[in-house]
Write a protein that binds this DNA or RNA. Sequence first.
RNA 1: UGCCUGAUGGUGUAAUGGUAGCACAGGCGACUUUGACUCGCCUAGUCAUGGUUCGAAUCCAUGUCGGGCAGCCA
Length: 604
Amino acid sequence: MTVEPIDPASPAPSDFIRDIVAQHVAEKRYPKIITRFPPEPNGYLHIGHAKAICIDFGIARENNGQCNLRMDDTNPAKEEVEYVDAIVTDVKWLIAGWADHCLGFKPKGATPAAQTVNGRPDYHLAAASPGSGLADAEPFFASHYFDALYAFAVKLIEQGRAYVCDLSAKDTDDYRGAPDRPGRNSPFRDRSVAENLDLFARMKAGEFPDGARSLRAKIDMAAPNMWLRDPLLYRIRHTAHHQTGDAWCIYPLYDYAHCLSDYIEGVTHSLCSLEFTDHRPLYDWILESLALPRPLPHQYEFSKLRPTYTLVSKRKLIHLVTEGVSAGWLSGWDDPRMPTISGIRRRGVPASAVRRFAIGAGVTKFISTTEIAVFEHAIREELNTLAQRRLAVLKPVKLVLTNLAAGEIIACTATNNPQDETPTTRTVHLTREIFIESDDFAEVPPPKYFRLKPGGEVRLKYACIIRCDEVVKDAAGAVTELRCTADLTTRAGEPNSDRKVKGTIHWVSATECVDAEVRLYDRLFAVPEPDADGDFLKHINPHSLEVVTAKLEPSLKGATTEQYFQFERLGYFVLDPKDAQPARLVFNRTISLKDTWAKAPGGK
RNA sequence: UGCCUGAUGGUGUAAUGGUAGCACAGGCGACUUUGACUCGCCUAGUCAUGGUUCGAAUCCAUGUCGGGCAGCCA
């Protein structure tokens, strides 16, 4: 196994779960640490899942272990293959270069093997050798364990620990009681083993309609923990499954399938979010009841990641996408404003930044809200080192350098990334007519404005200092052209290159630039907690997208979707992977640069 | 009125009986051919009340406040 260099985003984190794992490693409790990431394929992964992925895979990679990607697909009514594919893509993207070697996939088509361990029957499914080419491998699927799960259920029935119940859904609810009031035993609770076995087999054979019967664990209807009041193990659903087709009409419920899926895969540490804490006694009950021959997995819970200015609820995201797409203000699940992994990726956020954020959020049991500024900071930090600098003007104003001849071209050397140890350069051409940012000129400058103003001087980045001699306006009084003089002796390498002026602005040649559609994205919601009043649609940020036609330096014609760019003084940008074409440049703004001036009294 | 779970600056997170630290955010300044980056300084915290102890964010008790649980969802 190759040892990954310590990721800057995870400088040996320590938390209560890692402490437990470290102790288990120290006492050699398991031959190998195996975790799992178990999404249900009923929606797209979002930033909240990123934290779970980073914990599950992070703990695996720190312990030379493995993390299985498993579809928790026990409810065919809600799940689709489209989601399976999207989840696999997102997980692979997020862990690429960081924990690929820990990704647990199984051989394609493999199902748990029946085996005997210490004279006891068992089912086990090992991963395809992790990391070594996953060509003939696929994620794990809970649905691929249906035979094993059924066999285990039969065993529970034989032990008298499960029974077939004929109560309707409503009656089941009534019998369950309430948190502060004990439930009552189902009238079907004391059926004989033989009758239960027969009925369960007939449930499987499809003899009964949906909801007519269920298989229940026989635990304690008076238990203070609601999940121990004879929870359902199987329900009848005459519904085709995206993996198993029409093979089954009974489907296991989460609590029954999850713990056994963990066990079948040899998972050692089953990490989940806080709301499953109440389920843990049931998780343990099922596993312990079966007298299984191999070490049992254990569940540990942590608090979810909940960032401000967005939503991390699958149900609400579905609502958001449905509404937004039909109303036309959102392009879909991967809209660059969405908190989905696919949206974040399309926006141009590097996976390393997502990891840095998710890992930095920490692992605790405290229900917390993380300011989105922390994410934005992580994005800027990663992109600062990754992005190639380029010149681009978003809202152009024409500027004429009156002392340059019409066809004159002055080659200027521009640095690609000053953060590199040995920065490379490229050439940009200064010409008589250029564009500058309209924000970089003010006819009546506010206090402390050190950009261009009438009679004032400013440096053109990588070029020279210019002085504004004349402001040309149209009939309406709008500035149409600035006429300036260039002081060519202030260019790099020229005698006056050290001359200081307060402001430096970006520019592009008007005769050599290329046009591009640039999508300026901002936060999707206008308030920190969009769902605080239960009506998040009301709080959509009306300025979350502004589309401009920008002027770019010509080198950007060769941009690829894999490249991160910083348009100097503006922000970080990537080619939109969906809409950009060779003949049509479309850039997404990932995030703006920090803008101290914008916060100043005179700025904006 | 049951069970589970939690509480450290504005936010997140460390300190595992021994100096309450770090990051983000905010403020001030330095530097700057990006008002970026970087650097320096500042603001600001142990839910409450008792107890144990030489010493408590940490252990104990009580209280307060928050979150979760009554899907044939996961």
